[in-house]
Computed example of a mutant assay.
Amino acid sequence: MKKTLVLSLFFVMLLGTTASAKVVPTEQDVTLDGQKIEIEGYSIEGNNYFKLRDIAAILNGTEAQFNVEYNSSKNIIEISRNKNYAKLPTDLAVSTSKDTESKKSSQKVYIDGEIVNYTAYYINGNNYFKLRDLGKTIGFYVDYDESSRTILIKSEKVEPTDLIEREEVTFKSFAVDTLSNKQEFKIGEKKDITMDDFISNIESAVLLSTDERQFSAKVEYDDGKNTVKIAPLLFKIKGSLNFTPIFKVEQGEETYFENASGNINLKSLTSKINDSKDFRIVLGYYVGEASPQNFRSFSILEFKN
């Protein structure tokens, strides 16, 4: 009986350590360049959290302005420093709900193409981020006046830094097992292909640094720049290699190359072959001059009857 009681108490303590943090509306005043502003925030474990878009809205037009966009295809938030932000009707709106539903957020956020390891909370349907973390990584001034219990935001631009110390590594090459990175479809099954069709095949990718270290890597596609990015899986390692994607269409002895993009009509891409017979499309890149002998394969889609 005593043993059962001890185990029960242990699990109660364990559950208590994983329970969500206490979330209460921020009581402190908030000022921007000395002027009080109305903005909704929450206090969580002694830190103030605000909506990213609200901060973008109040800093828009200043030297510390930044843009925020949600990339639905990748389920990521993209922040772009030094860019104008178009305010939404929902920005700076104050919730009328008296109930607060919150949980830790796993939302991925990128700043100028680099992932940031934020601590965030999903509160009443919105992601809230620690204000000091936003100021540090985006590059604007944040402080707190203890005597007046006021949160101070300034629009002056400051040098942004990472939240954690990351090792900057220079990479010289990467390797993938192209034959393993292959996916098969039935002819007529797809009308369009996307870069994600190829990237989702990648089972293993390795980066080689200039000092001869090897790092397991992840592969991402930047549709804005039309580049494939190979970056280390370890968050503590900073750096990447990029390439401009090229499609190679193969059917028997027939082979030709086309510029790749994020979304392309399959019928248009295969217009030079008989697309009712088996064919394959290879995602790759050129090493040096754009010529067939300089093409390197990366991932393959096969289409068969």
Score class of each variant (00 low, 15 high):
M1G: 15
K3D: 15
V6G: 05
F10R: 09
F10D: 09
F11I: 13
V12W: 06
S20I: 14
V23I: 05
V24T: 15
P25T: 00
Q28R: 11
V30N: 09
D33T: 07
Q35V: 15
K36N: 08
E38L: 08
I44Q: 10
E45M: 10
N47I: 06
N48D: 13
F50H: 00
F50P: 00
R53W: 03
D54Y: 02
A56C: 03
I58Y: 01
I58R: 01
T62Y: 08
E63R: 11
E63G: 03
Q65P: 04
N71I: 10
S73R: 15
K74D: 12
E78H: 12
I79Q: 06
S80P: 07
S80R: 11
K83G: 07
K83E: 15
Y85V: 03
A86K: 13
A86E: 15
K87D: 00
A93Q: 15
D99Q: 13
Y110K: 14
D112L: 07
Y118C: 01
Y118I: 03
T119P: 06
A120S: 14
Y121I: 04
N127L: 05
Y128L: 00
Y128S: 00
K130G: 07
R132M: 08
K136V: 08
V142F: 09
I151K: 01
I153D: 03
S155Q: 05
P160D: 03
T161H: 10
L163W: 01
I164T: 09
R166M: 04
E168H: 12
E168P: 01
V169I: 10
S173F: 01
T178S: 12
K182Y: 11
Q183N: 14
Q183R: 14
Q183W: 07
E184D: 12
E184I: 12
I187A: 09
E189F: 10
I193P: 03
D196G: 13
D197A: 07
N201Q: 11
S204N: 10
A205S: 07
V206W: 00
L207Y: 00
S209Q: 00
S209F: 01
S216W: 08
V219L: 07
E220W: 09
Y221T: 06
D223M: 10
K225P: 05
T227W: 09
K229Y: 07
A231Q: 11
F235E: 10
F235P: 09
N242I: 13
N242C: 10
F243G: 02
I246M: 08
K248R: 13
G252N: 04
G252Q: 02
E253A: 14
E254C: 09
Y256N: 05
Y256R: 08
E258A: 15
G262F: 02
N263D: 13
I264C: 06
K267N: 14
S268K: 13
T270D: 06
I273R: 04
S276L: 11
R280S: 14
R280Q: 15
V282H: 02
Y285S: 11
V287W: 03
G288V: 03
G288W: 04
A290Q: 14
A290Y: 10
S291I: 13
P292N: 08
Q293V: 12
F298S: 04
L301E: 07
L301V: 04
E302C: 11
K304T: 12
K304A: 11
N305K: 14
